[in-house]
C-alpha cells in the first residue's frame, strides 16, 4: 500500500473538477459553503479582501481555526501557507489538512524558492500567471494549479488574463515541431519534460482551476468557458450581501456554465456582490500576483 503518490495527490484534484472551492473563516461559514454545494473549503483567518485591508504580515491560520472547520464539515478542507514556508506546510500536514495552497495571498517567506512539494504526502495547489510558472510549480510537485488573478479585489480581469495566457501558451506548444521544444522550455523557464508532455497532450498534466477576483455567477461561468476545470471563490462570497444565496448561485453557474438561461435565473435576487477594486487604482507594489515567480 502506497500513500501520497503522485496519482493519489493529483487524483483528489480530479475529483474536485467542475466544482467551487470557497474561502471560509469560521465553522458557521464552512457549513454555509457545504450546504451550498462547495466541493471543498479553504480555511482561513481572514479572507483576501481583509488581508489586503489589514496589511502587515499574513501567515498560516491558527491551527485551532483550521481544526474547528475540519470537524464541522465532511468535504475536503484546504489551508494556505506562505510561499517557501515548508514548516507551515509540515504543520498543516500534521493537522491532516486535505490540500495545501502555497499562496501568494500570504506574505512570502522565501523570495527565491518555493516549497519542494514532492516531499509531502498531502497534495499542493499553487497559483500561476502563465504556463511557465504553472509548469515550474508542477515540477516542484504541485498536484493542482490555479490562476492567481488578483485576490481580494472582486475584479475578475486578472484571472481572465492569466487563464488566457496559460491556454494560449498551451495551444502554441501543440503547434511546435519537436526540435523547437527545448527552446520553448528555455523561453518559458519550464522543465523540458513537462513542456514536451503539454505539447503532446494539449493540456496541463494537473487540474487547473481559476482564482482571484471571482465575485458573481457569471464570473465563474466566464472562467469555466475560458477553460478552467473549476473555480475558487475567496472574498466574493462572504464579503457579499447574501453569502448563502450567492454561494449556491455560483455553484449552479459553475455546473451549467454554458447555459445562459440558467445563469440568468440563478443570478436574480442574490443581493449585492462585494464592492470590488479597480486594478489600476492599486499601487503596483501592493499587487499580490507578482509574489512568487
Amino acid at each position: 500500500m502506497e500513500k501520497g503518490t503522485e496519482r493519489v495527490k493529483r487524483g483528489l484534484a480530479e475529483m474536485l473538477k467542475g466544482g467551487v472551492i470557497m474561502d471560509v473563516t469560521s465553522v458557521e461559514q464552512a457549513k454555509i459553503a457545504e450546504d451550498a454545494g462547495a466541493v471543498a473549503v479553504m480555511a482561513l483567518e481572514r479572507v483576501p479582501a481583509d488581508i489586503r485591508a489589514a496589511g502587515g504580515v499574513a501567515r498560516m491560520a491558527d491551527p485551532a481555526v483550521i481544526e474547528a472547520i475540519m470537524k464541522a464539515v465532511t468535504i475536503p478542507v484546504m489551508a494556505k501557507v506562505r510561499i517557501g514556508h515548508f514548516v507551515e506546510a509540515q504543520v498543516l500536514e500534521a493537522l491532516g489538512v486535505d490540500f495545501i495552497d502555497e499562496s501568494e495571498v500570504l506574505t512570502p517567506a522565501d523570495e527565491s524558492h518555493h516549497i519542494n512539494k514532492h516531499a509531502f504526502k498531502v497534495p499542493f495547489v499553487c497559483g500561476a500567471t502563465n504556463l511557465g510558472e504553472a509548469l515550474r510549480r508542477i515540477g516542484e510537485g504541485a498536484a493542482m494549479i490555479r490562476t492567481k488573478g488578483e485576490a481580494g479585489t472582486g475584479n475578475v480581469v486578472e484571472a481572465v488574463r492569466h487563464m488566457r495566457a496559460i491556454m494560449s501558451e498551451i495551444r502554441r506548444l501543440t503547434t511546435l515541431p519537436e526540435e523547437e521544444l527545448m527552446s520553448a522550455a528555455k523561453e518559458l523557464r519550464a522543465p523540458y519534460d513537462l513542456v514536451c508532455e503539454v505539447a503532446k497532450t494539449g493540456k496541463l498534466p494537473v487540474v487547473n482551476f481559476s482564482a482571484g477576483g471571482i465575485a458573481t455567477p457569471a464570473d465563474a461561468a466566464l472562467m469555466m468557458q475560458l477553460g478552467a476545470d473549476g473555480v475558487f471563490v475567496g472574498s466574493g462570497i462572504f464579503k457579499s450581501e447574501n453569502p448563502a444565496a450567492r454561494a449556491r448561485a455560483i455553484v449552479h453557474a459553475t455546473t451549467h456554465y454554458e447555459d445562459a438561461d440558467l445563469i440568468a435565473k440563478v443570478s436574480r435576487g442574490i443581493g449585492e456582490p462585494m464592492r470590488g477594486l479597480e486594478i489600476s487604482e492599486i499601487p503596483k507594489e501592493q499587487l499580490i500576483q507578482f509574489r512568487g515567480w
Binding site: 500500500m1 503518490t5 493519489v8 487524483g11 483528489l12 475536503p76 489538512v97 486535505d98 504526502k121 498531502v122
Partner: peptide, 12 residues
C-alpha cells in the same frame, strides 16, 4: 471517508 483524510489516501 472510511480510510481517513487525504493524507491516508492510497493506491494498492
Amino acid at each position: 471517508n472510511a480510510f481517513g483524510r487525504q493524507v491516508d489516501s492510497f493506491e494498492r
